[in-house]
Design a protein around this nucleic acid. Structure first.
Lengths: 158, 158
DNA sequence: GTAAGGTCGTCAACGTGGTTGTCCAAATCG
DNA sequence: CGATTTGGACAACCACGTTGACGACCTTAC
């Protein structure tokens, strides 16, 4: 690198990152819709991921996702109504309501993982596997290893 | 590349892209808040960018941003209330209401550009200028050159 | 054992952003 | 000219986020 770069404007970088994220998520949900999960929203996938196979509670979920327990509870309500989650009582603590995946929820989660892997392979086929890995490594290097902030709607607009 | 990659899970890629975007935007707005623009939300910056120095109308803005004209009008209302935009009548078409930047809006937009450039330089200093450029090129290659979809809150949570 | 304090879940109110549907005024077309 | 299209605004609605308040329940200390 002898001379300086041809001065790329800085504002393009966030736009490209957003576009990349959005492309991936849109492709995922287009495929999920084809596979029997048309009601899943981008947000929901991440919530299912956060609930995991072991289940949690609304408060834990909120902490994990970086949102209030009330907001987490509302989203759980929605996913219960859609048939992806269910609530159960904790036998050891009558205050807690365990949030668990239903079979349908597990199905969606597994399919998401498969599709994400396939999408990453598609990027690798286009760019080369090393470039994708480099992108991941680079992003990890400039990103404060945050524990997943999922308050996107409120953050962006709020 | 003799063998296959060590199987990185595909779901990390979107998370890293989102984290990168979010880091950039958060840093930008932290700096903007320091420079006298604490009320600007992430969304607002993109809207100002879309309005540009020449101004537009709410309908055009909505088309440009990928949202309805009503949603665009609402956001314009907010930015007018915050002092970043102003409306004026179009002398050639009494239906149209021109949306223009105020001096405050221009100030915010210019500062955003400066901060974005500086943030990109910071990434370049950490990763190397070629890596940042490569990331941009790669993202452009896997992204359908979309004309800026700004319906993020509704898209994500919808 | 009982009183004090902390935690979990829920209800309510509110703000912001998105949508669709309706409607009027103004421009444009035939 | 009348008919159609277009821009803007209003209203109703949904999704997601917030904070505040409040029971119900666990835990701890006395």
């Amino acid at each position: 690198m002898a001379t300086t770069e041809p001065e790329r404007p800085g504002y393009l970088l966030p736009l490209l990152l957003l576009a990349g994220f959005r492309t991936l998520i849109d492709d995922l949900h287009a495929e999920l819709a084809r596979q029997g999960h048309p009601e899943l929203r981008p947000l929901h996938g991440f919530v299912l991921q956060a609930v995991g196979a072991d289940g949690t509670t609304a408060t834990e979920l909120g902490q994990h996702l970086g949102i209030s327990k009330q907001a987490a509870g509302k989203t759980v309500d929605r996913l219960v109504a859609l048939g992806y989650l269910e609530r159960a009582n904790d036998p050891r603590d009558a205050r807690r309501k365990l949030v668990r995946m239903t079979p349908r929820g597990l199905d969606g989660l597994r399919r998401s993982a498969v599709v994400f892997d396939r999408l990453r392979q598609r990027w690798a086929a286009t760019l080369g596997p090393d470039r994708v890995a480099a992108m991941e490594d680079d992003l990890r290097a400039v990103t404060p290893a945050n524990p997943l902030r999922l308050d996107v709607p409120g953050w962006f607009g709020g």
